[in-house]
């Protein structure tokens, strides 16, 4: 078993997340893509923690923090999506153009 396998997996997950982030039109799917990105990062951290820092395991501690904050972020994200849905009756990103880019 090698560190590189895990890092490659994390890189692949990261790129899939980026793809989803850019192409999704549903706001909730964009939130899911962000979760994928964060999971790629935690996978990276856990792999480093196991192979480079096995005794002090700072990476595992970091991962716990990332998980905590990801949960908070998705709660806030869904609250915002709900409030926009109430006003606009859609979650389509293409429709959110009251403000021009």
């Amino acid at each position: 078993m090698e560190l590189q396998y895990f890092l490659l997996l994390a890189a692949a997950l990261f790129c899939i997340g980026i793809y989803g982030l850019v192409t999704s039109r549903n706001a909730i799917r964009v939130l899911m893509s962000i979760e994928l990105l964060l999971n790629a990062v935690t996978l990276n951290l856990m792999a480093f923690s196991n192979y480079l820092d096995p005794m002090v395991i700072r990476g595992q501690v970091f991962t716990v923090f990332v998980i905590t904050i990801a949960a908070a972020e998705s709660a806030v994200g869904l609250a915002i999506v709900l409030s926009i849905y109430r006003n606009r009756d859609t979650v389509d990103m293409e429709q959110f153009n009251l403000l021009k880019w």
Partner: peptide, 19 residues
């Protein structure tokens, strides 16, 4: 709606950039 929309854009772009 403008405030909602600003928040959504800020959140999505911000969360992505922090990831």
């Amino acid at each position: 709606p403008r405030s909602n929309e600003a928040a959504l854009k800020y959140l999505l772009i911000g969360a992505a950039s922090s990831a």
